[in-house]
Simulated assay, not measured.
Amino acid sequence: MKFECFYYPTLNEHDEIIKCNEDLKEFNFGDKVPTKTLYYNYGENFAIYQNSEFFIVEDGILTKTIPSSELKFPLHIVFGKGTQLKIFSPKDLSSIRLLLNGEFEKEKELGQLFCLSFMLNRLIKNTQYEIMSDLTNSSRDYNYINEEIDLRTQKLIDELKVVERKFYNLTIEHPNLKDSYLNYMNFSNKEDMLELSINKYFKEGTNEYKHYILTKSVWKSKPIYPKFKLDNLINSYNYRD
């Protein structure tokens, strides 16, 4: 089973942030599901409403489907592409399809931009290292090496500029958003960005899953904590308007 609420952010050709679940694996009952990433926090216990069915997640595990008559209230419910609501009674269920926005939408938007900034920075650095490793063994023409780095990272840098401008503008428009984002995400002192990555839920064989496996051993000895990285991003603002 594939669920729209488990997604990752990406930048489309119009420089818009969209939610995508392409190449994410399907889940069966008994599987652990991505209840928390850098851009959403559904909690460990909630119901997914999809295709007129209620799928129950308990302690982070997809356990079963149940009819609406067996739901217990108050209920945390997730539907569509991550819309979150807290429902207090059965009569509220009939109106959820009419809602376009749920709770914590701005916090999720900030988290998506934070995640994309981190991912793009890593991709740029990895690309630079790969080119330098490949070409310095065969060429001592450093101008050529620099030109190759510029050529292969330019699109990523352009995307990073878009993302960080959006991040900057969002925090200017909402001065308290960082604090409300951190309250919503409720990061523990032991959570690091690798374990919060959606990459481990990609299908095996995809570049994202391979990247997760390759970096797992390195990051275990040198974890990267979200609060620290978020402060670095806010204090740098490389690409302001």
Rank of each mutant, 00 (worst) to 15 (best):
K2C: 01
K2Q: 05
K2T: 06
C5M: 00
P9S: 02
L11P: 02
L11C: 06
H14L: 14
D15N: 13
D15K: 09
E22Y: 05
L24F: 12
L24R: 13
L24Y: 10
K25P: 14
K25Y: 06
E26R: 03
E26S: 05
F29E: 08
K32A: 07
K32P: 13
V33E: 07
T37F: 02
T37G: 00
Y40H: 06
Y40Q: 02
E44L: 08
E44R: 09
F46N: 04
Y49A: 11
Q50L: 03
N51T: 02
E53V: 10
F55H: 09
D59G: 07
I61P: 02
P74K: 02
L75N: 00
H76K: 15
H76R: 14
I77P: 12
V78G: 04
V78Y: 00
G80C: 02
G82I: 04
G82N: 10
T83D: 00
T83I: 03
L85T: 13
I87T: 08
S89V: 05
S89R: 05
L93Q: 02
R97I: 02
R97T: 07
L98M: 05
G102D: 06
F104G: 03
E105Y: 08
E105N: 10
E105L: 11
E105V: 15
E107P: 08
E109K: 15
G111K: 05
L113R: 03
L113C: 03
L116R: 03
F118I: 15
M119C: 07
M119W: 12
L123C: 14
K125P: 09
N126S: 13
T127W: 03
T127F: 01
Q128C: 08
Y129V: 15
E130Y: 13
M132F: 06
D134S: 13
T136Q: 04
T136A: 05
S139K: 08
R140V: 15
R140K: 14
N143T: 14
I145Q: 01
N146C: 13
I149H: 12
D150K: 12
L151W: 11
L151C: 08
R152F: 11
R152D: 04
L156H: 10
E159K: 04
E159N: 02
E159S: 01
L160V: 07
V162Y: 07
V163F: 13
V163S: 04
E164G: 04
R165A: 11
N169Y: 15
N169W: 14
T171Y: 10
E173W: 10
H174K: 04
P175E: 07
N176Q: 06
L177A: 03
D179R: 09
S180N: 09
Y181I: 12
N183H: 11
N186L: 15
S188D: 06
K190A: 06
D192F: 01
L196Y: 03
L196M: 02
N199H: 05
Y201P: 15
Y201M: 13
F202L: 08
K203T: 15
G205D: 00
G205P: 01
K210D: 11
K210T: 09
H211E: 07
K216P: 10
K216N: 09
S217A: 00
K220I: 01
K222F: 13
P223E: 04
P223T: 09
P223I: 09
Y225V: 07
P226T: 04
F228K: 12
K229W: 14
K229I: 14
L230I: 06
D231T: 13
D231W: 01
L233C: 12
L233N: 10
I234R: 08
I234Q: 07
N235H: 15
S236R: 14
Y237Q: 14
N238R: 13
N238C: 02
Y239F: 14
R240G: 14
